[in-house]
Design a protein around this nucleic acid. Structure first.
Lengths: 177, 177
DNA sequence: TAGAGCATGTAATATGTTACATGATTCC
DNA sequence: GGAATCATGTAACATATTACATGCTCTA
């Protein structure tokens, strides 16, 4: 049911390699950035690259650049480009319900006492604000050419203002000064 | 890396059972509704219920109600309530980056010709509008008491208006009348 | 009696994470 | 020599999906 994700991982990895050939470590560094819509773990990324090579979507070539250990540079193949294009069109036309992990707990918040709820939500707000801040350094150019990233930032800002309002609401419910 | 999800599945299932005891089929019907923040497949839900029973979070009792086949009614135990409360507090205080599957493809849209992009995005817009419509029947009462659901609806509305703007932008880029 | 809805599950497979293993180079 | 960064991977485990299997009751 969560299995929309493997297609999107494939789309993301092939899409990145279509723009620049890259070795696995480099790719993994890229995937650590706060602007990714989906998460791909390190081990998983290597596994997927190997699988894509077996299937012929990418080719791996060993490269040695001086101060660094040998590394495998992956480049997208013709077959990979076609697969990427096919997948891109498939995914653009679909609407896949996302997995909003964060929202599950919010539905049960009334179970807790207001002052405890406020304390917990404030901790969440700090973490969310940190993430928003780290995204605020992204240039308008990049945002304009990456609608997915632009929308991601809007989603996070929506979440942030919603959370602040919710904290206010809970605070006013808290009569036990 | 996606493995925030199992905790949220646990939180969701225990939270539902804390409100009403329920059998597996009933739970699965509930999980099909368009207002769920996360997806839990049918087989997975049964597996999790069995696992929770083994771990002592819930108890299953066979029930026979006349026209229906025998069914296993799950009720949350004391240990389950404690675990739920612990997990709820843990998750409320965290900010977990969601998995925005939908956004991955948007970042590559400039690769396609504008008119093709518009056609595909229009298909997506129809599906998204359907989902939004099915959520618009939810009462204000329910929304007010379920902040997670409320925010989910706001996320989807944001996505809808963003998508419509993107379609307009792409249409104006499309010079090949 | 055939199909639809109700109800629960299992086995095989696919997918993903964690922890570990390895080894090069650079800096201290 | 030891830590940090760079670089790739594997094995064991955890998790989730698909397809299948079963059997009840009701309606057409």
């Amino acid at each position: 049911m969560t299995m929309s994700s493997i297609k999107d991982k494939k789309l993301l990895l092939l899409g990145i390699l279509a723009e620049h050939s890259m070795h696995g470590y480099q790719l993994n560094e890229l995937l650590k950035s706060p602007g990714t819509a989906i998460q791909i773990g390190k081990a998983n990324a290597y596994q997927l690259l190997n699988k894509f090579e077996e299937e012929g979507w990418v080719t791996g070539t060993e490269e040695r650049v001086e101060p660094y250990p040998p590394r495998l540079v992956y480049a997208i193949s013709e077959a990979g480009k076609e697969e990427f294009s096919r997948l891109l069109q498939e995914r653009l036309a679909e609407h896949i319900p996302g997995e909003f992990f964060d929202l599950v707990s919010l539905n049960f918040i009334d179970i807790l006492e207001s002052d405890l709820a406020v304390t917990l939500l404030e901790q969440r707000a700090v973490r969310l604000a940190d993430r928003c801040d780290s995204l605020s350094t992204i240039s308008d150019d990049i945002r304009a050419s990456h609608p997915g990233l632009d929308l991601l930032i809007q989603h996070l800002e929506l979440e942030r203002s919603f959370l602040n309002e919710l904290i206010e609401k809970k605070r006013s419910q808290d009569v036990t000064s």
